[in-house]
Write a protein that binds this DNA or RNA. Structure first.
Length: 279
DNA sequence: CGTGGGACCTGAACGC
DNA sequence: TGCGTTCAGGTCCCAC
């Protein structure tokens, strides 16, 4: 579920609530949530550490402690929020971090895909993530969008190329740029490449402004829904008219992912750009 | 290097 | 109502 805008919204939501709080102990009901790290060991490491801040890298939430980082990935259905008790009222809480003041940071995840990792440093994250799209210039993103014959949709989903894009915002970005999702990256024309390089941060920033997309499971840290889904132009709009041209939006599968696009605004390219190829 | 398929999990929606 | 099937916003791993 959560992509960069949703993860950013959650990180911003919990940061003021838990920064400065001192950890007492953690609770789990399922050991895979800590990747198999025994709870006793986990607790011996985090007990008495103070939360120094909360940040985001790609789709990961990084909770900085005195000596460690707690790295959370929400995967499909994860939620992170602060509550007055351990898990009351929420059957999907599988991890809860208790503070000396009596509050708990709950990790709720019906599908049990999410994971929480305790680490001394974040270099392991840097090894699997490309740069942050919101801190790059258009020229830098354009440069990243080259050197591959892969279809642009799976290319953009690859977190090593650009970190943070997921199924929704890739579809929205490609529609905004007028590029067919199956276009090989090196076939994208120069002007289309520039449009895409501008669309990606634009779409993501707009979604952050709308506090993320609550289609199904995603909720903000305060429990409320985001409203980014009310601004989708293609995602989930199959059969409905394109807001730009009126043609019905189509849904196909590209690299096993449901993919939404406008067949008129996003033409399938039949040949490489006329500028030709580089050796 | 790139792709395809399956695994990891559960809930919701839909067809019969 | 109940049962079976399909799909879901992510990532990892293996085979080819």
């Amino acid at each position: 579920m959560p992509e960069l805008p949703e993860v950013e919204t959650v990180a911003r939501g919990i940061a003021p609530q838990i920064t400065g709080a001192v950890i007492s102990e953690a609770w789990i009901d399922w050991d895979k949530v800590l990747d198999g790290v025994p709870l006793d060991f986990f607790n011996s490491q985090v007990r008495d550490q103070t939360v120094r801040g909360v940040s985001r890298r790609g789709k990961y939430i990084c909770i900085e402690l005195d000596r460690d980082f707690l790295v959370v990935h929400l995967r499909m259905t994860g939620r992170l929020y602060v509550s007055g008790d351990l898990r009351g009222g929420d059957p999907w809480v599988h991890f809860s971090l208790g503070f000396l003041d009596g509050r708990w940071l709950r990790f709720s995840d019906s599908r049990k895909f999410g994971r929480i990792t305790l680490t001394r440093d974040l270099t392991y994250l840097e090894k699997k993530l490309g740069p942050e799209p919101l801190t790059l210039t258009t020229e830098q993103i354009e440069k990243i969008l080259s050197g591959s014959m892969r279809a642009v949709k799976p290319f953009l989903l690859d977190q090593k190329r650009i970190a943070g894009l997921g199924n929704i915002y890739v579809d929205e970005s490609l529609h905004s740029a007028g590029i067919h999702p199956e276009t090989p990256v090196d076939w994208i024309s120069r002007p289309a490449r520039k449009r895409l390089a501008e669309a990606i941060p634009g779409i993501l920033q707009q979604a952050i402004d709308h506090e993320g997309a609550s289609i199904n499971w995603y909720r903000k840290a305060d429990g409320g829904k985001g409203e980014s889904q009310e601004h989708f132009r293609v995602y989930g709009r199959q059969e409905q008219p394109c807001l730009a041209c009126g043609s019905p939006i189509r849904k196909i599968f590209v690299a096993q992912r449901g993919t939404h696009f406008c067949p008129k605004c996003q033409r399938r390219p039949m040949r490489p750009p006329a500028r030709g190829r580089r050796a």
